[in-house]
Design a protein around this nucleic acid. Structure first.
Length: 504
RNA sequence: GGCGCCGUAGCCAAGUGGUAAGGCAGAGGUCUGCAAAACCUCCACCCCCGGUUCGAAUCCGGGCGGCGCCUCCA
């Protein structure tokens, strides 16, 4: 069984074969840092994280480039409005992006190049296209790519069988007159007034200006993979479906014209949208949710990843409260099991675990090798949980084999919530007994203090319970439950206080 | 208008020719002072019509419904 991936270029699932055995050059389109990225953007980054992790788990040396777009109409527009330089304006959002991706357990890419750090590479690319006559200077001082001189244009988006909607875009207007063909796109843009103010202008032999949208990806990708491995074709290029046209189409055109090769990337992968209320989540529609919002609500990232990975990446799906709750519950169950499995790990595996582990390994590999079928991979984890819990209930022991299989699956998917369990034993009561004083019915805001608070209450409940004062014991249980601390009595008389979700 | 995707249980969602994975919710049971956790059991003929086939959720044609791209939007 080998890895098979859906390639947008051929519209088929095909066996994945990197250009050079054992290593993969992966480029993924990152965020435009003019604002906080929303969870829809992160759906794509999460899909790319899964790709990244699975390639690594499959033994590949992965060179993963994720760009940060820090110069475009939006960043310039917002910087202007804020009265800041481009660099100043963008900085906090870059930081926020990294915070968010760490929260969502998205592993580090190899490099995060910023567009404005690679202007020379872009200038070099434009110069070459100009000298080849594939690019030309318009009357407005911008440099355009001539589609007429690049016959292969349109393969990715199957443009040859398309018609543009009649009179569709009014935006063609502004620069239309200086372009030879409406479909030509800007490689380099003549500076506008605010470009100068925010410092988004660079000198170039063909005139002062700033890079067009698509240029950065080609220039940085080609520059970085040449530097790293001396190659000029990517193995995989990934992004959201909305980038297929024109962004990726244009990247292919300028890159291939530049390198003289037929391919810019061998495999093109695109993740589908996240919707809310039946519509694409987008800042334009104002229907966004950000990772920060979810973190505020105490949602464990494992639940978000589970939610995303329960749907195939090429399928649209709607984010709903019910869906999120359902994922939180499932992710919690995985967390409970993980605790059980790793705590009671024995020196050897019972046959039931040998078998379940073998099955999990096999099913995980089969699922992810099949165009990253994460829903099936997740299902395999749940099957392991059910079998594992049953075996544990029956007194069978889980050993290194079971732990390894679990860790491999969780290591790739990362869908498990942290479930913190505090054991409160009656013996500890001695120390607490003297402070019978008042105990607030609401927890302190500090997470650690809150835990201590919950423990206190749990001890009180234990006393009431041994005195058979069940009414009071139940009242305390309800009280704690209302603040996210769940009480569990176990047979040996000890009490567990269980906490799920992230501390705020 | 062009190109493309989707329609499977109360909700979400795999499966793409051989008789319906998984999650959540729900019902019953084991355990428990009661709970919780966990386990066991139960819960679908796959939007409609027609066709191909020994056999279709899966292929073809036609409907109906939803979404996306054609807009520097992941």
């Amino acid at each position: 069984m080998t890895l098979r991936l859906y390639n947008t270029l051929t519209r088929r699932i095909e066996p994945f074969e990197p250009l050079h055995p054992g290593r993969v050059a992966l480029y993924t389109c990152g965020p435009t840092v003019y604002n906080y990225a929303h969870i829809g953007n992160f759906r794509t980054f999460l899909f790319e994280d899964l790709l990244h992790r699975w390639l690594q788990a499959s033994g590949y040396d992965v060179f993963h480039i994720m760009n940060l777009t820090d110069v475009d109409d939006k960043t310039i527009g917002h910087a202007t409005a804020a009265g800041k330089s481009l660099r100043q304006y963008v900085e906090p959002y870059i930081e926020a992006f990294h915070e968010d991706r760490k929260y969502l357990r998205i592993e580090d890419a190899s490099v995060y190049p910023r567009a404005t750090d690679h202007i020379p590479a872009m200038v070099g690319l434009v110069e070459k296209l100009l000298s080849q006559g594939i690019a030309y200077r318009g009357e407005d001082g911008s440099v355009y790519f001539s589609i007429a001189r690049f016959p292969a244009y349109g393969r990715l988006s199957q443009l040859e069988n398309r018609e543009l909607k009649a009179g569709a875009s009014e935006r063609v207007s502004t620069d239309e007159y200086s372009k030879e063909d409406v479909r030509d796109f800007a490689l380099w843009k003549a500076p506008g007034p605010s470009d100068e103010t925010v410092g988004a202008v660079w000198d170039a032999p063909f005139g002062r200006g700033r890079p067009g949208w698509h240029l950065e990806c080609s220039a940085m990708a080609l520059h970085l993979i040449r530097e790293r491995w001396g190659v000029e074709v990517l193995d995989i290029h990934a992004g959201g479906v909305d980038l297929i046209f024109p962004h990726h189409e244009d990247e292919i055109a300028q890159s291939c014209a530049f390198t003289g090769r037929e391919e810019f990337a061998r495999v093109w992968m695109h993740g589908e949208f996240l919707k809310t209320g039946g519509e694409k989540m987008s800042k334009r529609f104002g229907n966004i949710t950000t990772p920060r919002d979810l973190r505020e609500d105490g949602v464990d990232a494992g639940a978000i990843r589970l939610l995303m990975f329960q749907v195939h990446y090429r399928q649209q799906f709607d984010l709903t409260d019910q869906g999120l709750q359902s994922a939180q519950e499932g992710s919690r169950r995985l967390g409970e099991f993980q605790n059980r499995l790793l705590e009671r790990r024995a020196a050897a595996d019972a046959p039931a675990f040998e078998e379940a582990a073998e099955r999990l390994d096999r099913e995980l590999t089969g699922a992810l090798d099949d165009d990253l079928n994460a829903p099936r991979a997740v299902a395999a984890m749940f099957a392991f949980v059910t079998a594992g819990n049953a075996a544990l209930d029956a007194g069978q022991q889980a050993g290194p084999r079971a732990a390894a299989a679990w860790e491999r699956a969780e290591g790739v998917l990362g869908v498990t919530s942290q479930v913190r369990v505090m054991k409160v034993t009656q013996r500890a009561e001695a120390g607490a007994a003297q402070e019978i004083a008042e105990l607030s019915p609401t927890p302190p805001s500090d997470a650690l203090e809150a835990e201590r608070w919950a423990r206190e209450w749990a001890l009180r409940r234990a006393r009431h319970k041994s005195a058979r004062n069940y009414a009071e014991a139940d009242r305390i249980r309800t009280l704690l439950g209302g603040h996210g601390f769940h009480i569990r009595d176990s047979k040996d008389g000890s009490i567990e206080v269980v906490r799920t979700g992230v501390a705020r």
